[in-house]
Simulated scan of single mutants.
Amino acid sequence: MGIDTAWAHQELAQFLELTALYRRPDPPGVSVISSRLSNRGAAAEIIASAQVVEQILDRVLPRWRAEVSDRDNTRVNRWCQHREAAQRALAVLAREAEIREKLGDNAPLLSASSMHPWAWEGARSLWQSGHFREAVTAAARKVNAETQNRVGRRDVTEGPLFQNVFSVDVPKPGQPRLRLVPADGSKTFASVHRGAAAFAEGCFAAIRNPNSHEAGLPELPEHEALEQLAAFSVLARWVDTATLET
């Protein structure tokens, strides 16, 4: 997962301690009938802890808001959904390595939250609600827009944009280039940039366009959407780390 497990465990445990539920005693001479429960910690402490815990949950259980019911938030306590999600996350952190070993699959895991921010931040909200195909499309738009920002262009987009910025030709007025390796005229220089342009063309032509324009397509399975998101993450990282040549 790429996170400090011990730290995450401590933060989740602290949150559960602060949000521990109890019933306030009735005032003297008054009988109150209510299902509402109170938290042990002060409201300000809980809110501060929740700010960190939500980010841990987004990393460990990306779809916790959709998969963990919030029905008890209004009738019992506002933090019920967070508490259940934190308990699940603790179990994942504690037993993930064991489960993978026992089930015979010790392959490395790919986490969306560890991808390039242009890809993941573009997709995050749709991904967490289970709209995987739309999430990939949003990531593609974000990568395209950030590439336009990087080279200062609005007159060209998607495939033609990347063909231009990764061109091996020398820059022209209003047409800067992105260099992944030094422009030394070598075969490596030519092949790297030809490959990057072709890869970008494939991402937009074979992933982004069908996702955006084909009506009635079924929802993508999450693992397939993750593969597609990873493709745009690779492209984003190339653009972000390339040398701008004007």
Rank of each mutant, 00 (worst) to 15 (best):
V170A: 13
I207T: 06
S113V: 15
Q55Y: 05
T241S: 08
Q14P: 12
S167R: 04
T5K: 13
H9C: 03
A215T: 14
W79D: 05
T243N: 12
L103Y: 15
V165Q: 03
Q87V: 13
L178F: 06
L103K: 09
A66C: 02
A20N: 10
T241W: 10
S111L: 15
S191N: 12
I46N: 09
L244V: 12
S233G: 02
L57Q: 03
L61H: 06
A135L: 08
W64T: 01
L90R: 00
R40Y: 14
A200R: 10
A85M: 07
A94C: 08
T243C: 00
P27S: 04
E84Y: 12
A97M: 11
L12P: 01
E146G: 06
S186I: 07
A231D: 08
A200T: 06
G195Q: 07
Q51V: 13
C203E: 08
Q55A: 04
S38K: 14
T5D: 00
F189I: 11
A85R: 14
D184W: 03
H82R: 15
A231I: 11
R133A: 05
R65T: 04
E201I: 15
L93G: 03
A43L: 09
N144Y: 00
P176V: 01
H131T: 12
L220T: 00
G202L: 07
N106E: 15
I3K: 04
E45Y: 11
Q10V: 13
W127Q: 05
T74F: 04
Q87Y: 04
P171L: 01
G195K: 02
E17Y: 10
K187E: 15
A190M: 09
L90Q: 00
L16K: 03
D169P: 13
L103T: 15
A236E: 04
N106R: 15
S129Q: 11
E67G: 10
Q175M: 09
Q87W: 01
E11V: 00
A6C: 04
D184L: 00
V181M: 07
